[in-house]
Simulated scan of single mutants.
Amino acid sequence: MNYVNIPIRVIVYIILGSISFISSAKVVREPNRDEREIAMAESALFWSRVATVSEYGRRACETNELACSDDRAELGLALIGGKKSIASIHALVFASRYRMDGALSENYVCYILSKGRIIYSELKFMNTTNLEKKCLSEFDARKKSNQRLFDGVPSNQICSSSKEISELRTALIQGLESGERCNDGDF
């Protein structure tokens, strides 16, 4: 038996094992700037809604107006709506999972209509059930870590139902097909 070959074999096995371990490890990619900005904007949409419907949030906002200004959701929507990336197109369509009232809802419609045909297929083929599930999942995860803030807040005050998302989608598609637009000063 050749004892010199045994250590070489062991070394070869170690190297091959290390290579297979390294190649099977998952590569974690850091989000790029666009993705980080979109995530912050989506977070602003979510948390602004929570602050307005939560008793605890409303009390906190009354004592510290700067912490809870209504413009956070509008700024988040403006950031997503003003971008021209593919990720922002997806995020704009997917923002329909959040319940939006009043001026925010009107601005949302205007941002969608301003995109024109670019956003049409994304709207047409979006899965409303998955969007509702995504929002409910976000709601549940955030509620676990912020129980006090979510006290007495039902998920349907934050998340749109699949039916509501579907109705909005239909109206938006009709608006796009008819060439409807908002005036520049509207949003």
Rank of each mutant, 00 (worst) to 15 (best):
M40R: 13
I119T: 07
A44D: 15
V93H: 04
I86F: 09
D140I: 01
R97C: 11
C159F: 03
S178Q: 09
S166G: 11
K143S: 07
R36S: 05
K143I: 01
C61A: 10
Q147I: 06
S48A: 02
A103I: 10
A60Q: 12
E62R: 14
N32S: 12
E138S: 03
N156Y: 05
C68T: 09
C110H: 04
Y111H: 15
S161N: 04
L113K: 06
D34E: 12
F21G: 09
A95Q: 11
A87K: 15
E74R: 13
V28D: 09
R117S: 11
I173Q: 12
E138Y: 07
P7L: 13
S23W: 14
S162H: 00
R9N: 00
A95L: 09
D140T: 02
I158S: 00
N183L: 13
F150S: 06
E167R: 08
S145C: 01
E180I: 08
L79P: 14
L75Y: 13
L16S: 11
V28A: 10
L149R: 01
Y56E: 14
E42T: 06
C110S: 04
K83M: 15
L136F: 06
I19F: 05
V109H: 07
S178W: 05
K134Y: 03
M40E: 10
R99G: 03
E30C: 02
A91R: 00
R72M: 14
L123A: 12
R97S: 07
F139M: 10
A141R: 09
Y120F: 15
A141F: 02
M100S: 13
E42P: 02
I119W: 04
E138A: 04
L113Q: 04
P7H: 07
L77Q: 04
I80V: 08
R29W: 05
I165P: 00
D101R: 13
F21A: 13
R58D: 01
E180D: 11
E62L: 12
G17A: 08
K115A: 03
L104F: 01
A60N: 10
S121F: 12
D184K: 14
N32F: 08
I118G: 02
I8Q: 12
R181Q: 05
S114C: 06
E37F: 04
C110G: 03
G185P: 01
A60K: 13
M1R: 08
S121A: 15
R148N: 14
K133L: 10
G81S: 03
A87Q: 15
E180A: 11
S54E: 09
I86S: 11
P31C: 04
I118E: 13
I6A: 05
S160N: 15
F187N: 00
S23V: 13
C135A: 02
L113G: 02
N130F: 14
N156P: 00
I112E: 06
F187Q: 01
N64K: 08
R117V: 09
E167T: 08
A39P: 05
E138I: 05
R33E: 12
R59P: 03
A141M: 04
N107E: 10
Y13Q: 13
M100V: 10
G179L: 11
G175L: 07
R142G: 09
A51E: 06
K163M: 08
R181D: 03
K163Q: 09
C159L: 02
C110I: 09
I19P: 00
M100L: 15
D140P: 01
S54C: 10
S161R: 01
N64L: 13
V93I: 14
R49E: 07
N32H: 10
E30I: 11
